[in-house]
Each structure stands twice: as structure tokens, then as C-alpha cells.
Simulated scan of single mutants.
Amino acid sequence: MSRARDVCSDIKYGEADAMIQKKAKARFEGGTVPSLTDDQAANIVTAVKSSFCN
């Protein structure tokens, strides 16, 4: 939840899409997800933006 909130904060503060995706990639990688592609990071941002951010 906190990672999704952070993505929403980046969007709210008007960060560039490329930077939002870069930060999302860094936030969601690790543990059981050792690496993400840029497309996967973009999909995460899209999903968070459409379902979590108000």
C-alpha cells in the first residue's frame, strides 16, 4: 500500500512520467520480484493511477 501511495504522490506533484516509472520500478523490485522491465513498471503506474489514486 505504501508503494502505491508513493506512486500517487509522484503523480500528484507533477513529476514527469519517465521519473514516475523509474521510481515505481525501484520501489516494486526486490524480494520475490528481482527485476522489472520498463514496460512492467509502466503497467504498475497505470494500474495504480487508475485504481488507487483519487
Rank of each mutant, 00 (worst) to 15 (best):
residue 8 C to I: 02
residue 8 C to L: 02
residue 8 C to V: 02
residue 9 S to V: 09
residue 9 S to E: 13
residue 9 S to C: 12
residue 9 S to I: 05
residue 9 S to M: 09
residue 10 D to F: 15
residue 11 I to W: 02
residue 11 I to L: 12
residue 11 I to T: 02
residue 12 K to T: 10
residue 12 K to M: 08
residue 13 Y to H: 13
residue 13 Y to G: 09
residue 13 Y to Q: 13
residue 13 Y to N: 15
residue 14 G to N: 06
residue 14 G to S: 04
residue 14 G to Q: 01
residue 14 G to M: 02
residue 14 G to E: 02
residue 14 G to K: 04
residue 14 G to R: 04
residue 14 G to P: 02
residue 15 E to C: 02
residue 15 E to T: 02
residue 15 E to W: 06
residue 16 A to D: 13
residue 16 A to W: 05
residue 17 D to V: 05
residue 17 D to F: 06
residue 17 D to A: 08
residue 17 D to R: 11
residue 17 D to N: 07
residue 18 A to P: 00
residue 18 A to E: 15
residue 18 A to M: 08
residue 18 A to L: 07
residue 18 A to F: 13
residue 18 A to T: 11
residue 19 M to H: 04
residue 19 M to K: 11
residue 19 M to E: 14
residue 19 M to F: 07
residue 20 I to M: 04
residue 20 I to R: 01
residue 20 I to Y: 02
residue 21 Q to S: 13
residue 21 Q to L: 07
residue 21 Q to C: 07
residue 21 Q to N: 14
residue 21 Q to Y: 09
residue 22 K to H: 06
residue 22 K to F: 11
residue 23 K to F: 04
residue 23 K to Q: 12
residue 23 K to Y: 06
residue 24 A to M: 01
residue 24 A to K: 00
residue 25 K to A: 07
residue 25 K to I: 06
residue 25 K to H: 09
residue 26 A to C: 12
residue 26 A to R: 15
residue 26 A to H: 11
residue 27 R to W: 08
residue 27 R to M: 14
residue 27 R to A: 13
residue 27 R to K: 13
residue 27 R to C: 05
residue 27 R to P: 02
residue 27 R to Q: 11
residue 28 F to G: 06
residue 28 F to T: 06
residue 28 F to R: 07
residue 28 F to N: 08
residue 29 E to L: 09
residue 29 E to I: 09
residue 30 G to I: 01
residue 30 G to N: 05
residue 30 G to L: 01
residue 30 G to S: 05
residue 31 G to L: 07
residue 32 T to I: 15
residue 32 T to E: 13
residue 32 T to F: 10
residue 32 T to A: 14
residue 33 V to F: 08
residue 33 V to Q: 10
residue 33 V to L: 12
residue 34 P to W: 08
residue 34 P to M: 08
residue 34 P to F: 06
residue 35 S to T: 15
residue 35 S to P: 04
residue 35 S to Q: 14
residue 36 L to H: 03
residue 36 L to S: 06
residue 36 L to M: 11
residue 36 L to A: 09
residue 36 L to G: 04
residue 37 T to K: 10
residue 37 T to P: 02
residue 37 T to G: 12
residue 38 D to Q: 15
residue 38 D to N: 15
residue 38 D to V: 12
residue 38 D to E: 15
residue 38 D to T: 14
residue 38 D to P: 04
residue 39 D to A: 15
residue 39 D to P: 00
residue 39 D to G: 10
residue 39 D to E: 14
residue 40 Q to F: 04
residue 40 Q to N: 08
residue 41 A to W: 01
residue 41 A to Q: 04
residue 41 A to N: 03
residue 41 A to M: 06
residue 41 A to T: 05
residue 41 A to S: 11
residue 41 A to H: 03
residue 42 A to D: 02
residue 42 A to E: 03
residue 42 A to G: 06
residue 42 A to Q: 02
residue 42 A to T: 03
residue 43 N to R: 12
residue 43 N to W: 07
residue 43 N to C: 11
residue 43 N to E: 14
residue 44 I to N: 00
residue 44 I to K: 00
residue 44 I to E: 00
residue 45 V to Y: 01
residue 45 V to L: 03
residue 46 T to N: 14
residue 46 T to F: 11
residue 46 T to D: 14
residue 46 T to Y: 14
residue 46 T to S: 13
residue 46 T to I: 13
residue 47 A to S: 10
residue 47 A to W: 01
residue 47 A to C: 05
residue 47 A to N: 06
residue 48 V to C: 04
residue 48 V to Y: 00
residue 48 V to I: 14
residue 48 V to D: 00
residue 48 V to L: 03
residue 48 V to N: 00
residue 49 K to L: 07
residue 49 K to R: 15
residue 49 K to T: 09
residue 49 K to W: 03
